[in-house]
């Protein structure tokens, strides 16, 4: 009973609740994909190309006769995997940098923030394009490029959080008790800024999904024949007059993820402020 209470607090926030269900729709599709895929997502069947919804292909087929539903099931994996890796990259590198910067201040802060600011000066997608242009297209390079892009926002949030708490009385008090810097950083301040980091992570997830779709759309993300929402969208646009549903399906999938995570983030933020 008592355990349920915090969750109820979250779900009474309409943004959080809607966002949660949107994200969960996509996640459940991904989970379904692990157990059951109707067709091989890359199996070409020209005879049945650009079909509408039928009992055999519930979401129809694409220009090569591949089953769209199967491709969506596999495509969710890519989007979510990239989202998780990119956010993980940002959190694991950005947060410690921001923590050091905010907590110690002075020279440390100056050096770290100069580097971060320099990176922020690059338009994000341009940086990603540059990295991919240099290292070539692959999943790893996409994650690397988007991950680098997501570091600054975590650094900034962590920095302001650690700065706010570095002279808080409870931090002073534990310092007076002999707690080491590491202990104060990890056990005392970090738990206090987790809510803010969660908001950032959620928004970061949304923008990672968006950027990946963008890169794939430009042909720089996932390489064919592997399915990804961005790639599907760019292929579908050529057939928009013959097969409107083909465009609609990846668009809806991307929108669900991006809006879902944005709403989750907004919801978390207003819950934190209560």
């Amino acid at each position: 009973m008592k355990r349920n209470f915090p969750l109820r607090r979250y779900f009474s926030n309409i943004h959080f609740a809607i966002g949660f269900y949107m994200v969960m729709t996509v996640v459940s599709l991904m989970i379904l994909g692990f157990f059951y895929i109707p067709y091989d997502p890359n199996a070409i069947d020209i005879a049945h190309k650009l079909q509408g919804a039928t009992t055999a292909h519930i979401l129809g087929t694409d220009q090569l006769g591949r089953d769209i539903f199967s491709r969506v099931l596999v495509g969710t994996r890519v989007s979510l995997l990239i989202g998780i890796l990119v956010v993980g990259f940002g959190v694991l590198i950005g947060t410690p940098l921001g923590a050091l910067s905010g907590y110690f201040g002075g020279k440390t802060d100056e050096v770290i923030m100069k580097v971060i600011d320099t990176q922020m000066a690059f338009p994000g997608i341009l940086l990603a394009l540059m990295i991919i242009a240099v290292f070539g297209t692959s999943l790893q390079n996409t994650v690397l490029a988007l991950g680098l892009m997501s570091i600054p926002r975590f650094t900034r949030i962590a920095r302001s959080g650690f700065m706010k708490y570095r002279n808080a009385e409870f931090v002073q008090a534990s310092r007076a008790r002999g707690a080491s810097h590491a202990r104060i950083l990890v056990l005392h301040i970090l738990p206090n800024i987790v809510p803010e980091l969660l908001v950032t992570a959620s928004l970061g997830f949304a923008s990672a999904v968006m950027s990946e779709a963008g890169l794939s759309y430009l042909g720089l993300g996932m390489q064919p024949p592997n399915p990804s929402f961005g790639k599907m969208l760019s292929e579908a646009q050529n057939y928009i007059l013959q097969a409107w549903w083909y465009v609609l399906i990846p668009s809806v999938a991307i929108s669900l993820l991006v809006m879902g995570f944005n709403l989750l983030g907004d919801g978390l933020q207003s819950i934190n402020q209560q």
Binding site: A168, E169, F170, Q172, A173, S174, A176, G178, L187, V194
Partner: peptide, 20 residues
Amino acid sequence: MRKENQIIFQDPYSSINPRK
């Protein structure tokens, strides 16, 4: 020295870590 000397602050709302 840290073991022998302790300090207690004014505001018990800010001198205790709220997340522990």
